[in-house]
């Protein structure tokens, strides 16, 4: 009866597209990871673990572990910055002010709907060492010592990329946290205030513990995003200066454009394995409220 009213072929369109463009390429990745597939010959030879050796040997022509380390630094830094700033802003817009709170929420979320490409291009000009808005502003208020060669200096390039990404992503995390804060019953805060709890005490004893599930979700979302980061690095620095800001995905694109498909697909496949494990936990987390 049920299967007659809800025929399985209804799901076939979604499944076909998903299999063709998601699942099959990922599975093919496992095969091509063991080959010397490249753009120079049509021949594809089995080469065993050679691609993995290239990736895990630090002495190879490209230091792949360096890109992995960059990706991890980027991911951890953006998780921390976005979570802390977004939490502060969410509390400000939920408990700190009431009038205009929705207006501010809409404005602060705006960067998240802008194309990453556009955000990166504009920040390229803002962070220009000589003429950029940031440095000219710093100099005009006498803070010359703070004016850095942001995207050009090896030491400052990664922090700059992290800063721009935080600017762009913090509104998104804030919106989720606001929804979490609004789900906490007001009575808890009222009871705490009657007992004479300070603002800080009720934040630590009520807000943080009750927000923990939502904070877990935002952390995982940031984690998934951070490990896959591409556009912002590609446009802001294209991995430079040198290869100071190259991440796993920009390295994959680089290998791809050099025609070294075997190494590119091996990197992709390794990332796939990590993401699938993480993905399993995300789905578990996101699924809680769907099951009744």
């Amino acid at each position: 009866m049920r299967s007659r009213a809800y025929p399985f072929y209804f799901a076939s369109g979604a499944l076909a597209l998903y299999l063709l463009f998601y699942v099959i390429p990922s599975i093919m990745g496992f095969y091509y990871a063991f080959t010397d597939w490249n753009s120079y010959t049509t021949e594809v030879n089995f080469i065993g673990l050679e691609n993995f050796r290239v990736i895990f040997t630090s002495g190879a022509s490209q230091n792949y572990m360096h890109f992995v380390r960059n990706t991890i630094v980027f991911t951890i830094a953006t998780i921390l910055l976005k979570t802390i700033i977004a939490l502060g802003l969410a509390v400000l817009l939920t408990h700190g002010i009431h009038r205009l709170a929705y207006f501010h929420r809409v404005v602060m979320y705006l960067p998240a709907v802008l194309p990453m490409l556009v955000v990166s291009l504009v920040f390229k000009s803002i962070l220009n060492p000589a003429t950029g808005l940031l440095n000219t502003t710093l100099r005009s208020v006498g803070l010359d010592f703070m004016a850095q060669r942001w995207l050009v200096d090896v030491a400052w390039a990664m922090p700059s990329v992290i800063g721009v990404d935080t600017w762009r992503g913090v509104g998104y995390i804030m919106v989720i946290l606001i929804a979490g804060l609004q789900a906490i019953p007001r009575e808890y805060y009222e009871a705490a205030a009657i007992d004479g709890a300070s603002g800080w005490a009720s934040f630590r004893r009520i807000t943080l513990p009750l927000l923990l599930p939502v904070l877990t979700v935002t952390t995982v979302l940031n984690l998934l995003y951070g490990l896959k980061v591409f556009d912002i690095v590609f446009v802001l620095t294209n991995g430079g200066p040198g290869r100071a800001t190259d991440t796993v995905y920009t390295a994959i694109f680089d290998e791809f454009s050099k025609g070294r498909y075997g190494v590119a697909t091996t990197l992709s496949t390794l990332l796939f394995l990590i993401m699938i494990v993480l993905g399993y936990f995300v789905i578990r987390l996101m699924h809680r409220d769907v099951e009744e």
Binding site: F8, G29, Y32, Y280
Partner: peptide
Amino acid sequence: NRAIYFFLIMGIAMPTNFVTLMKVMQMT
């Protein structure tokens, strides 16, 4: 059906393998 549902939403986390996807795009 529940397994299919989970299988589909796994894609939220799954990274795209652009290199082999290119192969699929060529073949199709």
